[in-house]
């Protein structure tokens, strides 16, 4: 599990619940999304790509990298801005375009 849902930002649209390939997310009585069992998450970030208000971020798990880090996604059509942040606060943004092929 590495996704974190900010309940104060979540608008309860249910898009992440619909898109999750593992049926991991559900909605509480206020329609806010939450993972029923966090260990079921695959870190595929499909939910982050669907969320209209950037309420979901991914926290780099300690088991993967002890330095930590965080990522958010802003998506607009073909363009995805991957907003990455180091634990010291430094931010790195990489933008990808589905119209541009991988070079390797």
């Amino acid at each position: 599990m590495s996704i974190v849902i900010d309940k104060t930002k979540c608008v309860g649209c249910g898009k992440c619940v619909h898109i999750c390939p593992g049926n991991v997310l559900r909605q509480d009585v206020q329609k806010k999304a939450y993972p029923e069992d966090p260990s079921d998450c695959w870190s595929c970030v499909s939910c982050m790509k669907e969320c209209p208000v950037q309420a979901i971020s991914i926290l780099l798990p300690m088991e993967i990298s002890a330095g930590g880090g965080r990522m958010k996604i802003r998506r607009d059509g073909n363009i995805t801005a991957w907003e990455m942040e180091k634990t010291d606060g430094e931010k790195i943004v990489i933008t990808t375009d589905t119209n541009e092929a991988n070079k390797y």
Binding site: L60, W82, M84
Partner: peptide, 24 residues
């Protein structure tokens, strides 16, 4: 340039790998 291209390539398939590289 190759490293940058790899960051892009992994974001389009296994984004946690790029996050790990970029933050460490």
């Amino acid at each position: 340039q190759k490293e940058k291209d790899l960051y892009h390539a992994y974001l389009n398939m296994a984004p946690l790998q790029t996050l790990k590289w970029v933050t460490s």
